[in-house]
Design a protein around this nucleic acid. Structure first.
Lengths: 203, 203, 203, 203
DNA sequence: TATGAATGAGTATTCATTCAT
DNA sequence: CATGAATGAATACTCATTCAT
């Protein structure tokens, strides 16, 4: 194992060691004891590098978000139509595979955040949201430039983000079919633009 | 013969007595002892009328929902344009006044529901959602009949509900301006219909 | 249904109605509410005919004991050797079939009785014990008369009863083979008599 | 580096501190809070060293059993005849002095164990039983070697243990004279051996 | 005589965080 | 730098029994 040179690096080291742990146990059932054990350090040591439990959970989640972001950018780059890009944006959390584990953690995170007992939690939420809003903005502006949509205002990134949040929350309900809802929403919002983008695609 | 009480009525009586309590303390900090005291009965009596804490919380929230529903229907009835009706639908939770207390409880409820540890909580969520979806459906179909919107499919009630959920959740964030977001969303989604409905309104 | 003429008869009526209930739920999980429902009377009515929960449990158990006693006397009458009679005495609680339900209740009864919080429970225990001791005494004296055993003192009924109690309690343990232990005990205690009784049997 | 405590030692320390407490209150009325106070530690600390309440009760009882075992071995060593050794085995729980407190706890333990709601409790019961069976086996084999009894099979240790259990349970009954019963039982079972052992003793 | 509505005491357990070493 | 021992607050739920009608 490489010698840890600075605090920031050790933070990442510990966080990376506990990714699987968080996915398996979820936020609430994750204990500092278990984290310390898994990271191979003492409980006290955790508090040398993190303020509190929230802090370390944030750090772990940050690594997931980085992954998610990277994967999303790949999908976006690999998509031609704006519709497809936006579909990936909404659908990525609900894909087959390990995504449900991440979704579970995300829901738990939202839950804690909704309890509204922590300033830091809210700040972190905001920061995450903004990173994805940036991607969304880029997608919409490019679509505008390419003429795939008429005006970005008509498909405001904020509305999209709100809808995405709603999807995550409502997906907890029995009988809620995420993909179906995503398609309906995209249909509603892109009706007019779709024809144009299809024209372009069919060239 | 002994007294026969109307169980359903007493349930409501106890629930009504604890409305303020729930608004003040929130779901988690609400204790059965406190409920019993406030309702003026013994702790055991609570369990004669409710299965468990969840059950009584549901009953209290149900009274709030009934109020909310009634108020919403009034506003809808008092509105001419579909846009205004939909605005009320989305905005009512965020109005000035006591609404923020209800919103707080609603967020807490979503949080617990997102933790996903209770089947009953999910069933109750679904049931609540369906009541409001019914109103939304009516509004959209009437709007269609009145020619205020072109097709109800283009403004699917489900998408609306998802957006509404997202609004509640995202409203927790610093710098999130609910009214602004609602207007942007309505703008996006009604752009094409708006002109027509304005035409009709201006007649 | 026949009209109930007196207290004692109604007591028996209620008790008989709840035999299955007791076998199914056991003493602790048996609630007065459930008893009242099953007997088709109100909770308060139970307390018109019984002092308390103990009292009704005693009444139900008494019916079981009467059955057990009757069955035991049949088996004893149908057995030739003293050994066989004594075997029935010890083994009847552990037979195949529904006996295990009765055994479960008996263990529970012993448990409550051992907690030692009730005078009445102890008095009832004593009374039950004495009924079975009487049978045992008869068996031993007859055996003496028939020359199957040398002296009843050598096989004192009390010791037998104590051993029987021990069997019930120790039968809760993993790996305890009741039938085996019964046979070992009877072997130990009848070694000397056995030969004589075998002689008599072989005649 | 932080202090490393010997967990096993601290377990014993806490258990020893609570011996009197258990004797005074019994198992059911013993609370963790009270244990923690008496041991001079926080409630949480108890759970650092014990799985749950059962676990600590077992540990305390284990100290009693160790005492009992030691005392029994002394008495056995100090006795000449097999009869006397076996008498101590049966009688020690019923001696004058503090024994009745231990007996009370033992009865309570049997009661809980008979309720049969805990696997661990049964396992612990079995383990305790086996320790005493081992002593019994030794006594019987030695007696055989010394010619005090004819065959150990005729006085199987298991039967003895069952009788001992029965004694503890039946001793709860009014009018049950433990010493008398013990003597009767020993008389029954040792009649034939007694003469021989008396012969040897009288040499 | 019958009923059933009302009652209320009592307790194990978890885990983030601190700080003495 | 690292550690891990110690801490303690906080709460739902059951059911035998009573007594007003």
């Amino acid at each position: 194992m490489a010698i840890i040179v600075n605090k920031e690096e050790k933070r990442r080291h510990i966080a990376l060691a506990c990714r699987e742990l968080l996915l398996e146990y979820g936020i609430n059932s994750l204990t500092i004891s278990h984290i310390a054990q898994t990271a191979g350090v003492g409980k006290g040591t955790i508090y040398e590098y993190f303020e509190n439990k929230e802090d370390i959970v944030f750090e772990i989640i940050t690594t997931f978000i980085a992954d998610h972001e990277k994967k999303l950018l790949e999908r976006v780059a690999g998509s031609d139509s704006a519709r497809q890009k936006l579909f990936h944006f909404l659908n990525m959390l609900f894909e087959e595979g390990d995504a449900h584990k991440h979704l579970k953690v995300y829901k738990e995170f939202l839950a804690i955040s909704l309890m509204g007992e922590s300033k830091e939690m809210l700040a972190f939420s905001l920061q995450c949201r903004q990173r994805f809003m940036a991607i969304l903005d880029t997608v919409l502006h490019e679509a505008k430039t390419l003429g795939q949509i008429i005006s970005p205002e008509a498909l405001c990134a904020n509305s999209f983000a709100v809808f995405a949040t709603g999807l995550v929350v409502d997906s907890r309900l029995e009988g809620f079919h995420v993909q179906h809802e995503i398609n309906l929403f995209l249909n509603s919002i892109m009706t007019m633009n779709e024809k144009q983008s299809i024209k372009k695609e069919s060239k």
